[in-house]
Computed example of a mutant assay.
Amino acid sequence: MGYHTFDAERADKLEEAGQRYQFISAEELLWAVSLSPDDTVADLGSGTGFFTDDVAPHAGEVYAVDVQEEMHEYYREKGVPENVVLVTSDVSDLPFDDGGVDAAFSTMTYHEFASDDVLAEVRRVLASHGRLVIVDWASTGTGEDGPPVDERYSADEATDALRDAGFTIEHEAVRPETFLLIATLE
């Protein structure tokens, strides 16, 4: 699908903890990503760094990847943790070495970049036994929050795409508005 990106002029909305944690808590995200203190992690579609900030204290280095430089400007003003590197890039062309990332996660952005090419690129940069966590808006949701329903994927569609890209699905949770997938590489 690859529809629109989040409007950077509304970036303040991405900092509303009550709203953001309603769909995935920091604790659940950390559980899903399952980090070691020296791991290198990529937040794919990091926006203002809301969830990047939750992950950073538990990782060695975190790449906050966003296609919009305006989101990085917002993050700089907010304050970027020392171990976070801001990367302005499309997820389809990540500037990382093959196998250079131990884990990657996407919170509410998969619908913006999902494609076979992007999943191949994520697979390229993930290390052997690397982990990919996707939390996104479900096409089965009401559309009251998040993007329009017709811009979303179902958990089954995302699971099929990940399997086709060579990932193994370790965990799947489908909620009223969202889904959570944990996928790994062999």
Rank of each mutant, 00 (worst) to 15 (best):
V67G: 02
A32L: 14
T88A: 13
R10E: 14
D117P: 00
D38K: 15
L132P: 00
D66S: 07
D43W: 08
T107L: 09
A64I: 07
D164G: 05
A158W: 01
E112F: 05
V118G: 02
D117H: 06
A42R: 03
A42T: 09
D160H: 04
E157L: 09
E151H: 13
V122L: 14
I182V: 15
A120W: 06
E112P: 04
L126S: 00
D136E: 08
S128Q: 13
A173V: 13
T159L: 04
L86R: 09
R152H: 12
L181C: 08
T40M: 04
W137A: 08
D102T: 05
R20Q: 15
Y21N: 12
W31D: 12
A8W: 04
T184P: 01
D38L: 14
K78P: 03
R124L: 07
A183Q: 07
F105P: 00
K13F: 11
T40D: 08
V101N: 01
E27W: 11
H129V: 03
P148T: 08
A127G: 04
G47H: 04
T184A: 10
V118K: 01
E73H: 14
S128T: 07
G79Q: 14
L126F: 00
V85E: 15
P95W: 01
V122T: 14
S106G: 13
I169G: 03
D116P: 01
G79I: 12
R123S: 15
N83F: 12
R123L: 08
D150W: 12
D90H: 06
D38Q: 15
D150C: 05
V122K: 00
V67N: 09
L180Y: 03
W137K: 06
V67Y: 06
P57F: 11
E186K: 14
